[in-house]
Structure formats: structure tokens, C-alpha cells
Design a protein around this nucleic acid. Structure first.
Length: 602
RNA sequence: GGGGGCGUAGCUCAACUUGGUUAGAGCGCCGGCCUGUCACGCCGGAGGUUGCGGGUUCGAGUCCCGUCGCUCCCGCCA
């Protein structure tokens, strides 16, 4: 008989009755009746009930039935009588009648319960992550992540002809984008590697190398502050790149990927390919964001000209100063109490808005403190534009365009949430396309790249030469699902001449570009195929499928919000010798948090 | 770097609004009882510098200030 187990804790059924077996696992729960004892033994596959007859005395030198100890039982599989069958367990028709037990590993008193998944302090969970990962929820999510990766590989390789590559982790610092994680070089004093923020340049080089379709489950490292959906440190992208590909080619590959992948893991309704395409401009107007949740059945509208003619001075003046008025029509909430509307006004103030006006249509007509500022015709025009009738409401915000759009978007999203307007049984995908190539930095007044400097400008060289830079669009796109930005991508600019031109508009001298992107430029002078790609975020996909809002819930060993690993103690100080080998001297700050760090270092 | 929320037993929470006797409950832990439970049940017990420091007050878990920690958001993240 195997030293630890002949079966796992999830597999035995009625057919196994009569067999002599051995099971190992964790003590999930114990019901000690003084005489007979029941132990729920759990492993990675399930739970089996072990029964210990009072006449068996093997357990008597065991001091406690300490939960989460690892035990090994040997005995006979017996069938449960009909009234003792447990339908909640897959193995509930049988149980193991044990005649021998071995303690493989004892367990101390637990800091939190494994069997009962009560919420508990996340820091504590991270400190005892191995226990947290035993809990069913985390356990299943980590397994889900693994299965998603497996499916992605299968779909990309078998169905779409992609090839998986690996690219360096010790890469070089990228001048654009987020802060880098740096690794000092021992052999080259004063020089540093940088962990890749994404394998962007490497995958483009692979395209130039003649590999047709690249993918990688790629670790990405960015030294940026955390958010609920953004890990500090590292995260993973399903990094894709395709040679001789147009934007549409990338779209159809990704649409195939998602419409094949998602049904493997969810019963919910998934957008059919082709996914809706929304221009960046339209998205900002209709949804007030470039990552709209299309499940919310509200579309924002511009009504600036109707307010320009009104007597509603506060908003009219905003329009006269070049601002806009955006309307948010909402059905069926006219009978909400005053407090509902007051709370919304408070919400807009908290999000930087000056105010929120509204019109309420009910049986008697229009009810609102601002109704008197409008003619009958204007009120009717507003009602028609929102397709409204009695019982409906229209909200208004006014500000400079980008602020009004963002605020209206926040109000729309908030209404979707508090009115519970999202159909949770849907995954609504869309593409956001036609991002502007450049944007104005309002602080410096200078033109900057608005997204990726490697994107191909629509209209190519001609557009860069002739058009207003702020009007030039890029072959740059985002994939969005239920308000989550899943992915950014672009058709790349593979022509050095167009690259120099684009960079010069953003204020870079040719020589500077040459210095920063010398390797890529060299490649582009030796026969680069047109290419494009995208990189969906793995964790966000798993978060959508697992219905959780925090990236740490789908990551086995995440750093906490302060980018610390509280289980193993990263980051940590290093020895003088290590620093010396790397030609480093510390120059630590004197105050606050860092002072503590210095204390620890001593 | 800035703003919001939270911090009470090992864990989850109550007491806070309106300051007032000995800070309670469930789970866990310790002891006892229990032969068919499956969130087993029953009896008893231990366990607290209310994150830390200061202030107001006759009196502070509760009010005020500071600080630390966690978390969410803004900045930041092509």
C-alpha cells in the first residue's frame, strides 16, 4: 500500500465500498461524540468523512483534534446508511472506517479559520497566505487562473497558430511609461538592468525576426502605486503580436480568443463577435469614459446649445466660456424621495463637480427648480432627446468638456450601481478605437503622446505632415468588458521615417530617439514587416470570471498595497558585502517611513 | 505626495449616536459530558494596556489633537 494514500479525498464513491484504502489530508472539521468520532478529511480534491469507532484506541495518545493538522488514515470504505448520506459532499455516500492513523504534521492554533471563510484582515491573510490559499474561495480562484492560462495557450496555439516565446526579465530601462524596477549590475559599475514593464520591444523584434504570431503569458513589472485592480510589482499579460496584420486582424483574433475562452468558464451571456466598436470620441461623449460599462442602459448626450439659449445662468455661462452641458437621462426614478437627489448632488460634489441639475417628468408635467428657466419648446426637446415620459428624470452637469464628460460618466456609473441597472448575467465587450495620437499637456502647453509612441498614426506620414497633430488618430485600441479595461494594443509604426516624425511632434530630436530606441530602429532598417498586437491583462480576466474586485484575490502571493511581502519579508535589506559587489552606497532619507527603514537596516 | 474609511479577545463583530458600575456575543482555545454527526450538541473556564501617544473631563473604548498600521480613491500607471 502506498505510504500516504491510495486515493484522494474527493474521488471515492459507492463503487469503492469494501476496499481497504489509505487517505491523507487536512483535518477540516471534527465531530467528537465522546464515543464515535467523525473527522472530515480534506485534500486538494475534496472531503471524505473518516469514522473512528470507540473501540479503536489508536487516537487516544493524540492530545487534540487540532484543525488543519495533516493526518493519514488507513481503513475500509463502507457505505453510509440512507439516512446518514450527506448530499452536500461528493463522497457523501461513503465513509472511511479507520483502523490506523498517523500524524504527518501537527498544526498550531489557527490565526483564522480555514473551514469557515469569515472575512478577516487582509494583512493577516497575507501573513498566513498558505492558510488563506487552503480556503475554498482562494483555492478555487488560483485554480481558475491556472485553467484560464491553459485554455489561452490551447486556443492561441491550436486554433489561432500563435507560438509562445520567452523574453528577457533582465531588460533595459524604458524611457516612456511607468517607473522601472532596477537591478544593479555587478559587472558594469553604475549601470542597471530594468525589469520589463511589458515585453513590448522584444515582441516587435520577434516580428522583425520573421516569427509570424507571437504570444507570451508575460510577467510585467511596474513600480507604481497600487489600486484594487492594479498590483504593485508584477502582473501578467497575455501578450500578443501579429505580423502583416491590420487592426481588424488583431480584433478578430482577440474576439475569437475571448468568445472561445469565456464560455469555458461561465454560463453568462457573452457579446458575439464582432464586438461593438466605439470611437474614443464617442465613448467620452456617450459614457464619459473610455472604459464604459455597456450594461448600464443610460447614454449621455450633449445639450449645450439648449442651455446656451436658456435663462439658466449658471449653466449658460459655462457654455459661453467654451464649456459644455451633458444630459444623463434616467427612466423610472421620478418618484424617488428628495434625499435620493440630494445624495446625487453630494456625489457629484465629491467628484469635483460644482453641481447637478435635474428635471423630473411626472403626470402633472415637469417638476424642478430649474424648469422655470426653460421654454416649453426646450423642455419638450430635452424630453424627446432622452426618449423620456412621465416618471423619468434627466440630470445635467456643466463644465469644460473633459471635466463635464468625466463627471457625467461618474454619475452614469454611480446610477448604474445604486439603481442596480447592470445585468450581472452579461459580459459586454467593446473595442474603443481611434484614440488621438497626441494630446495637449494642460500644464506645460506642450504636445505629448497620448498613448503608445510606437503606434501607427492613421493617415501615416501624410497626416503627420499636414494635419493638426491634435486631430491625428492612432491605430490604437482598447478592449473593454463591463467597465473593465482589459487590454490596450496598437498597430505599430514600423517605419523609422514616420517614427522620427511622430516623435518630433512630441518634442523629441532625432538623435534622442536614436539613443533611446536604437535597437528597435536598427531592426526597422532591416526589413520590418507591418505588425500589430495587444496584451490583455490576465488578472483582470480572472477577476471578471471569478466576480471579484480585487486583484489580490486572484493572485497566490501578491504584494500588499505598500509593495511588501509580509510572509517572506520582501523587500529586505542586504549585506554590506552585497552592496559593495554592486558598487552601491545607500543614501537614505531622514524622515518618516524611511527612517524606520534605516533603523531596520542597522 | 494628497483625501476618505477602518483599528475593541486568536478571528468576526457589539457597546460609540447621547462619556458613567466589572467592555459583551459567536467562532476558536482549555477542562468536562456525549456512539451516527456532518456548521454535532450540552456544561464550565481562560482570554482585553479598546493600535500607540497626548489633551478635554470628576470620569474616555466613546469627544478633540497627533501618530502608526491596514484599506479604498486621487496623483501616478503608454
Amino acid at each position: 500500500m502506498h505510504k500516504y494514500r491510495t486515493h484522494n479525498c474527493g474521488e471515492m464513491r459507492r463503487e469503492n465500498v469494501g476496499e481497504e484504502v489509505r487517505l491523507s489530508g487536512w483535518v477540516h472539521r471534527v465531530r467528537d461524540h465522546g464515543g464515535i468520532i467523525f473527522v472530515d478529511l480534506r485534500d486538494g480534491y475534496g472531503i471524505t468523512q473518516v469514522v473512528i469507532d470507540p473501540e479503536r484506541e489508536f487516537h487516544e495518545n493524540l492530545e487534540h483534534w487540532r484543525l488543519e493538522s495533516v493526518l493519514c488514515f488507513t481503513g475500509k470504505v463502507v457505505s453510509r446508511s440512507p439516512e446518514t448520506v450527506n448530499p452536500k459532499l461528493a463522497t457523501g455516500e461513503i465513509e472511511l472506517e479507520a483502523w490506523e492513523m498517523q500524524v504527518l504534521n501537527d498544526c498550531q492554533v489557527l490565526p483564522f479559520s480555514v473551514a469557515v471563510e469569515d472575512e478577516c484582515d487582509e494583512n493577516l491573510r497575507l501573513q498566513y497566505r498558505f492558510l488563506d490559499l487552503r480556503r475554498s474561495g482562494m483555492h478555487q480562484r488560483v485554480l481558475l487562473r491556472s485553467k484560464v492560462i491553459r485554455s489561452v495557450r490551447r486556443i492561441l496555439e491550436d486554433d489561432l497558430g500563435f507560438t509562445e516565446f520567452q523574453t528577457p526579465i533582465l531588460a533595459n530601462s524604458s524611457p516612456e511609461g511607468a517607473r522601472d524596477y532596477l537591478v544593479p549590475s555587478r559587472l558594469h559599475p553604475g549601470k542597471f538592468y530594468a525589469l520589463p514593464q511589458a515585453p513590448q520591444i522584444f515582441k516587435q523584434l520577434l516580428m522583425v525576426s520573421g516569427f509570424d504570431r507571437y504570444f507570451q503569458i508575460a510577467p510585467c513589472f511596474r513600480d507604481e502605486d497600487a489600486r484594487a485592480d492594479r498590483s504593485p510589482g508584477e502582473f501578467y499579460q497575455i501578450d500578443l503580436e501579429m505580423a502583416f496584420a491590420s487592426q481588424e486582424d488583431v480584433f478578430s483574433a482577440v474576439e475569437y480568443l475571448f468568445t472561445t475562452l469565456f464560455p469555458e468558464f461561465t454560463e453568462k451571456n457573452i457579446s458575439k463577435a464582432p464586438f461593438q466598436r466605439i470611437t474614443y470620441h464617442d465613448a467620452m461623449l456617450r459614457y464619459g469614459t473610455d472604459k464604459p460599462d455597456l450594461r448600464i442602459p443610460i447614454e449621455i448626450q450633449d445639450v449645450s446649445e439648449l442651455f446656451a439659449d436658456s435663462d439658466f445662468n449658471a449653466f449658460r455661462q459655462v457654455v459661453e466660456k467654451g464649456g459644455v452641458v451633458r444630459a444623463i437621462p434616467v427612466k423610472g426614478i421620478a418618484d424617488r424621495p428628495r434625499s435620493f437627489f440630494d445624495n446625487l448632488i453630494e456625489f457629484t460634489r465629491q467628484h469635483g463637480g460644482k453641481g447637478l441639475a435635474y428635471l423630473i417628468w411626472n403626470q402633472e408635467g415637469v417638476k424642478s427648480p430649474i424648469a422655470k428657466f426653460f421654454t416649453e419648446n426646450t423642455l419638450e426637446e430635452l424630453r424627446c432627446r432622452g426618449d423620456l415620459q412621465a416618471g423619468d428624470v434627466m440630470f445635467f452637469v456643466a463644465d469644460q468638456e473633459h471635466r463635464a464628460a468625466a463627471l457625467a460618466g461618474e454619475v452614469r456609473r454611480h446610477l448604474g450601481e445604486i439603481l442596480d441597472l447592470c445585468d450581472t448575467q452579461r459580459f459586454d465587450f467593446c473595442w474603443i478605437v481611434d484614440y488621438p495620437m497626441f494630446e495637449l499637456n494642460h500644464q506645460t502647453g506642450e504636445i505629448e503622446f497620448s498613448h503608445n509612441p510606437f503606434s501607427l498614426p492613421q493617415g501615416g506620414m501624410e497626416a503627420l505632415n499636414q494635419d493638426d497633430p491634435l486631430q491625428v488618430k492612432g491605430f490604437q485600441y482598447d478592449l473593454v468588458c463591463n467597465g473593465v479595461e482589459l487590454s490596450s494594443g496598437a498597430v505599430r509604426n514600423h517605419r523609422p521615417d514616420i517614427m522620427f516624425k511622430a516623435f518630433s511632434i512630441a518634442g523629441y530630436e532625432q538623435q534622442e530617439v536614436e539613443e533611446k530606441f536604437g535597437g528597435l530602429l536598427r531592426a526597422f532598417r532591416f526589413g520590418a514587416p507591418p505588425h500589430g498586437g495587444i496584451a490583455p491583462g490576465l488578472e483582470r480576466i480572472v477577476m471578471l470570471l471569478a466576480e471579484c474586485r480585487n486583484i489580490r484575490e486572484v493572485t497566490a502571493f501578491p504584494l500588499n498595497q505598500n509593495a511588501e511581502d509580509r510572509l517572506l519579508g520582501a523587500p529586505s535589506t542586504v549585506s554590506e558585502k552585497q552592496l559593495k559587489e554592486l558598487h552601491l552606497k545607500l543614501n537614505l532619507p531622514k524622515k518618516g517611513k524611511e527612517q524606520k527603514a534605516r533603523k531596520e537596516a542597522q
